[in-house]
Design a protein around this nucleic acid. Structure first.
Length: 313
DNA sequence: TTGCAGGGGTCAA
DNA sequence: TTGACCCCTGCA
């Protein structure tokens, strides 16, 4: 099949339509000692979800479990290919926090079914079938992806860790100290010398300015999520250090917009090598993802990113 | 050991 | 459209 024949195919469906379909949640949640167990969970794998580039604060342990700091909590998750155990939480927190954070109300089987009509995505989904888009805190996503610009993942994680240690709250789990992501006010009332301790370089100024912009002007997230995607992107790009790529990441990873297609070097590689056959211009990639993936572009991006990082050089 | 290239981009000219 | 930007890491 020629590449451009494939490119005429439109596969994305509006997410809102999927939401209106009857949701069949197969899993059941039970309380255990110091935690919960989500039995018979479909379309999930912690490695795929935590290593697909959307988050920076989940770390794999020697036993294969993950410990993460999110939403002001520290939890440990264990996976046996069927049941997800979350330690250091309870049913109440599951209903208030984790069901949304892990996006457990969404029918990923259906999303993958639609996206897999595209042969490239089918390969990507076969590889990263357990990806779920985490619904992360907006402020944390904003600051984290400002830090991510022109930066390596290990260093991004180290910088966020240092900032959390300096400005966040201490959380103790299993005798180890962890630190929540700081309140945005902590950054806003700090100064460039203090923030500089995290060694984020020129991004420190972006962090301070953005935090001050947020505290002074605020942002109406409900309004942003209702805007058309172009306007939503523009509204985030008013913040210092936020360009189109960071804006798209924040929209997607804080659950505000799912039809964005954050385009970084890896996605560009996928586009070049698996779709276009040449180095496409940014506007070509945007048009392509709109046409091809529609309202499911954000999900497609995650499967492609995860696939690219393991399969392309 | 040292030097260099480049990294999940953004900004300003 | 282009080069500079902080700092770290990997590699020769």
């Amino acid at each position: 099949m020629k590449k451009w024949e494939v490119s005429k195919m439109r596969i994305g469906e509006p997410v809102r339509n999927l939401k209106n379909e009857v949701q069949i949640l197969n899993f059941t949640v039970k309380s255990i000692e110091n935690g919960i167990i989500i039995e018979n969970l479909q379309d999930f794998d912690p490695i795929h979800t935590f290593e697909c580039g959307q988050c920076f604060r989940w770390n794999i342990q020697e036993d294969g479990s993950y410990i993460g700091v999110a939403l002001g909590k520290v939890v440990k998750v264990l996976w046996n290919n069927k049941d997800l155990t979350i330690i250091n939480t309870n049913i109440d927190e599951f209903n208030r926090l984790w069901i949304h954070y892990f996006d457990l109300n969404r029918d990923y089987t259906r999303i993958k079914e639609i996206l897999a009509k595209d042969p490239v995505l089918k390969a990507a989904i076969d590889f990263g079938y357990g990806i779920r888009l985490l619904k992360q805190d907006f402020n944390e996503s904003l600051i984290s992806f400002i830090i991510s610009s022109n930066n390596h993942i290990p260093r991004i994680k180290k910088i966020i860790e240092t900032l959390s240690r300096q400005y966040g709250n201490e959380l103790v789990f299993d005798g180890t100290r962890y630190y929540s992501f700081p309140a945005i006010e902590s950054f806003a009332k700090s100064d460039i010398e203090q923030i500089g301790i995290c060694k984020a370089g020129y991004r420190c100024e972006y962090i301070l300015k953005t935090a001050q912009q947020l505290v002074q002007n605020g942002i109406d997230l409900a309004a942003v999520s209702k805007m058309d995607t172009y306007s939503a992107r523009k509204s985030l790009m008013q913040f210092s250090g936020v360009g189109p790529k960071v804006a798209d990441c924040v929209l997607l990873f804080s659950g505000l917009k799912y039809d964005v297609f954050p385009t970084d070097v890896w996605v560009r590689k996928v586009m070049k090598e698996l779709y276009f056959g040449y180095e496409p211009k940014p506007h070509e990639i945007i048009s392509f993802s709109d046409e091809r993936f529609g309202d499911l572009a954000g999900f497609a991006q995650q499967y492609l990113f995860y696939y690219a990082r393991s399969h392309l050089k």
